[in-house]
Simulated assay, not measured.
Amino acid sequence: MSDIPQENPFQTPAAVLQDAATTATGEPLYRLAAVGIATFFGTPLAGAWVIVQNLKALGRSHESRNIWLMGIGLTLAIFVIGYFLPENTSGTPIAVGSVVGMYYLAKQTFDVAVERHLAAGGQWRSNWRAFGISLLFLLAIVVAILVSTLAFSLAQGSLFFRTVPA
Rank of each mutant, 00 (worst) to 15 (best):
M1V: 11
D3H: 07
I4L: 14
I4V: 13
I4K: 10
P5C: 06
Q6G: 04
E7Q: 13
E7I: 11
E7D: 12
A14K: 15
A15M: 14
V16E: 10
L17H: 11
Q18M: 05
T22E: 08
L29G: 02
L32G: 10
A33M: 09
A33Y: 04
V35M: 05
G36V: 00
I37R: 01
I37E: 00
A38W: 00
A38H: 06
F41Y: 04
G42V: 02
T43E: 06
T43P: 02
P44L: 04
L45V: 14
A46R: 04
W49Y: 09
W49M: 12
V50I: 11
I51E: 06
Q53A: 10
L55I: 09
L55N: 08
L58F: 13
G59W: 00
H62F: 14
H62Q: 13
H62V: 12
E63L: 11
S64G: 05
R65D: 13
N66S: 09
I67P: 01
I67W: 02
I67L: 01
I67F: 00
L69W: 10
L69K: 04
L69N: 08
I72D: 03
G73Y: 01
L74W: 11
T75A: 00
A77F: 11
I78Y: 05
V80C: 06
V80I: 11
G82E: 03
Y83K: 09
T89P: 03
T89C: 02
T89F: 07
S90V: 06
G91D: 08
P93I: 03
P93G: 06
I94L: 15
I94M: 08
V96W: 02
V100Y: 13
V100R: 10
V100A: 15
M102F: 01
M102A: 03
Y103E: 06
Y104G: 00
L105T: 13
A106Y: 02
A106E: 03
K107L: 11
K107A: 13
Q108K: 15
Q108D: 15
T109C: 00
F110T: 09
F110Q: 14
F110M: 15
V112T: 15
A113E: 00
V114Y: 05
V114H: 01
V114A: 13
R116N: 15
H117C: 07
A120C: 02
G121W: 06
Q123L: 08
Q123G: 11
Q123K: 12
N127A: 07
N127P: 04
N127C: 01
W128I: 12
R129L: 10
G132D: 07
L135C: 11
L135Y: 08
F137V: 12
F137T: 15
A140Q: 10
V143E: 02
A144D: 02
L146C: 14
L146S: 13
V147A: 05
S148P: 02
T149K: 14
L150N: 12
A151F: 15
A151W: 15
F152D: 07
L154R: 12
A155M: 06
G157A: 14
G157F: 14
G157K: 08
G157N: 12
S158H: 05
L159M: 13
F161R: 15
F161C: 10
P165Y: 09
P165R: 04
A166I: 02
A166E: 07
